[in-house]
Design a protein around this nucleic acid. Structure first.
Length: 485
RNA sequence: GGCGGGUUCGUCUAAUGGUCAGGACAAGAGGCUUUCAAUCUCUGAAUGUUGGGUUCAACUCCCACACCCGUCACCA
């Protein structure tokens, strides 16, 4: 299976944004190349002129780069098997198709689109289960072909399919798949506009570029046997195929653009951290050997094994993805998390005289999505209006009256803290708590409320005090006392 | 409809003839705690609610059936 250097390719069509299912295919493709010390090639399949979207190629580059899926050969970085954009390879395909015609394995077809449509309608009306081309031009006399060509009648090139027997196709995951040749259509190789069809261009390019492992979506499984016939016609070796199942929205629907969140960019916008996205989608349709499921891309390469790939569709679960995201964020070194979190903090917090390191420490274990951060720190700039009801806490046995008492005690204690840091605030407060023999919550719950005005905060009263600084802390305590009297 | 493929807790999956069918997310209960956060502990939850066969033994192999997905383009 790996007797020659592994070469894999990711071959997207520039028709829009990067779909998450497509990205997963890219991830698997990349991983296989890296895992076996091979090359990862990027090829742009733009043979459908009508569906081409301006800027889509740049989007592909950008997404792959952000994800760390670096390619060894491709349109922008070059390579010895270029060009890597199919529209620039037009002549190559035509040359190979014409070779097949000369060998009697393909033929010019002058049938109009209208004729084919009519044919299919008739077949449907006759309740035929098969709708194939009737091979009208398959055995046209040579003179007629020549005459038509000279007259400039538009044509396509079709492959002659065998009319009997079976074709066997092999997939690493699915094993041998055998189909009856009678169901095979004389497929079009070159379209009337001179562009190759996807099927044809794929075979030519994969062969010419020395691709050893083809990873692609499951939707190609049914048409796969046709490929073998093409390889056979040229006398080429067939690469290994790995078809991966779809990512589903639910049991009966694929994750599609209609769901609004099927694109890579959508997830980034929602606050997902890129390595976590990669990690999660890799887990959709693939399972590691051990019980750990948190991996960076490099770790995935290390951990990957084809036998872990699944043959059944996987339903996308945003909750699990969120959990994995949170875990990735938690594992980040302090400074790395700070770098990532800062832009989100800055969205609602303009102050820079606060203790960011304490804030980061409080935030890091509590962040599931990066976008939550902005809302979590919005009390720092200005204390929001809040209701005294927040001072009620059943478990802590606090209420507005006990809170007023507690804040009055806290104020002079904190005023006495000369070097303002988390540790000193903590020991000053706890000394007082011990002295008075009260519950921690008696003092700390009101402090947290007075400093934040929020029911939920990154950290408790001591951390908030450390973050806000002495002056701001004391001023907010005063505000709390005033509001309670 | 023909053809191809698939089917284990709600979800992702492990177990490729022998395990109390395991883990993670989610859910529920509890502990700790300065929060409804974080963390820890525990619980419930599945082999297609099908039917046959092979075998000492079937989630695993075979045959039906059911359901789901894909495909049948001058789209990829």
């Amino acid at each position: 299976m790996f007797d020659k250097k592994v070469r894999t390719r990711f071959a997207p069509s520039p028709t829009g944004f990067m779909h998450i299912g497509n990205l997963r295919t890219a991830v698997f493709t990349y991983i296989i190349a890296r895992k076996y010390g091979g090359d990862f090639i990027l090829r742009i399949e733009d043979t459908d002129l009508e569906r081409y979207v301006e800027g889509a190629v740049d989007k592909i580059y950008e997404t792959l780069r952000v994800c760390g899926l670096n390619w060894d050969e491709g349109p922008d970085v070059g390579g010895e098997f270029g060009p890597y954009i199919q529209s620039e390879r037009k002549d190559i395909y035509i040359r190979y198709a014409e070779q097949l015609v000369r060998d009697g394995k393909a033929y010019y077809c002058f049938c109009t689109k209208e004729r084919i449509d009519r044919l299919h309608e008739e077949q449907a009306a006759a309740n035929l289960s098969l709708r194939t081309y009737d091979r009208h031009c398959r055995d046209l006399p040579e003179e007629e072909v020549k005459a038509n060509l000279e007259k400039g009648i538009p044509y396509v090139i079709r492959q002659k399919m065998p009319t009997e027997g079976t074709t066997t196709f092999h997939d690493i995951l699915y094993g041998d798949i055998v189909v009856d040749n009678t169901i095979l259509d004389d497929q079009i190789l070159i379209k009337a506009d001179g562009m190759p069809t996807y099927n044809f261009a794929n075979v030519i390019d994969d062969h010419l570029m020395g691709i050893t492992h083809v990873v692609r979506g499951n939707e190609y499984l049914s048409s796969a046997p046709k490929y073998n016939l093409l390889y056979e016609a040229f006398g080429w070796d067939v690469p290994e195929y790995i078809h991966v199942e779809h990512i589903m929205r639910d049991a009966t629907h694929k994750l599609s653009k209609r769901d609004g969140d099927a694109y890579f960019g959508d997830f980034v916008e929602k606050g997902f951290y890129v390595p976590a996205i990669i990690n999660y989608i890799a887990l959709l349709g693939w399972a590691p050997k051990g019980e750990n499921e948190i991996f960076t891309l490099d770790e995935l390469v290390n951990e990957f094994d084809i036998s872990g790939l699944s043959k059944s569709p996987a339903i996308f679960d945003i909750q699990k993805m969120t959990a994995i995201n949170a875990e990735h964020l938690r594992r980040l070194p302090h400074d790395e998390f700070k770098k990532i979190a800062m832009p989100f903090i800055k969205k609602t917090c303009s102050r820079d005289d606060i203790d960011f390191d304490v804030l980061i420490n409080a935030l890091q274990p509590r962040t599931e999505l990066l976008t939550e951060i902005s809302e979590k720190v919005d009390f720092i700039d200005a204390l929001p209006e809040y209701s005294n009801d927040l001072y009620f806490n059943k478990k802590m046995k606090t209420n507005p009256e006990t809170a007023a008492e507690a804040l009055a005690i806290i104020k002079p204690v904190l005023e006495g803290v000369s070097e303002w840091n988390e540790e000193n605030i903590h020991s000053a407060l706890f000394a007082e708590i011990e002295k008075r023999g009260v519950k921690n919550g008696f003092m700390l719950w009101p402090l947290r409320v007075a400093l934040s005005g929020k029911p939920l905060t990154p950290g408790g009263g001591i951390e908030l005090a450390a973050i806000l600084g002495k002056a701001e802390t004391l001023s907010r305590i005063d505000k709390g006392i005033a509001q309670l009297s």
